[in-house]
Amino acid sequence: MPSAVRFENVSRRFGDVRAVDDVSLDIASGEFFAMLGPSGSGKTTCLRLIAGFEQPDDGHIYIFDEAVEGVPPYKRAVNTVFQDYALFPHMTVGENVAYGLMIKGVGKAEREQKALAALEMVKLGGYGARRTSQLSGGQRQRVALARALVNDPKVLLLDEPLGALDLKLREQMQEELKSLQKALGITFVFVTHDQGEALSMADRVAIFNEGKIVQVGAPEEVYERPNSPFVADFVNSSNVLTPQFASGHGGTSKWTSLRPEKIMAFAAGAPVPDGHAHADAEIETISYQGAVTRLGAAIGDMHLIAQVPAAATRFAVGDAVRLTWPKTAMVAMEGGP
């Protein structure tokens, strides 16, 4: 599959801060690619580098195998859905959507027809004459999407597009975006700090930390086999076991990820099933979360989170418990913290 966006050792500095630090990356054509990381990790700067709002200090960026250094945003066949949508307040919804076509010199009748089609695609058929100030957050988001897509971009960039929406709307938009991407076959590059969003929507996820990509892979891969304590913690909210603890509890002497839902909690002294490791701990916190309960437990100075079915919880803070988990659930990682 041809490459849609390729980074070769790209760096971008702001003063002393290395916002993007020696990043190499290859996004395939037609892929739904997510850039995931905490704020300030460099994911948004990467997006802006692709859009052309930023220029790399070092390295090269290729869009469909063309070097794009020094190419301004208006000459790139990529379009962006901005975080705050950036709809032009002095134009109607229809004029917003038709803006790119007008700039390109498309005739009035044709661009109106295309804008209408784009609005229908995002289910805002009758909204062309409205003012953008009359729209709800979800509707603005759709207009921003239509305004970008109407230009037939080779790559669509989405900067935390669902961040401002409420939970229900966000889940609905996730589905729509995904099916839209499948239908159009356009490469989507999607920036988010929400790991659930990234994992559920993307074909592949790149996890950013401090200007570097720490892991790239399919969602299952990143989720099941984090390669570093950072990924384990940020993506899975996993327990990160020190090499000493892991080697003493059925693992290897490497930093090890252990997901909370893999840990079971029993009364002290309960038998340990075959193929399982165990640790005797004291409960520090109990937090009820509906279907599940999260237990915080201490084993000496090691703290673990166990996520157990709510019905199975009969513990109180201060109780001694025996935690057990399948040895196969322990994922040894290469990096350290």
Partner: peptide, 18 residues
């Protein structure tokens, strides 16, 4: 500059200045 750039070649003086 064929695929990544816009289809319509833009060589106007203002664009060059821009």
């Amino acid at each position: 500059m064929t695929t990544a750039t816009l289809e319509r070649p833009r060589t106007s003086l203002l664009t060059a200045l821009s």
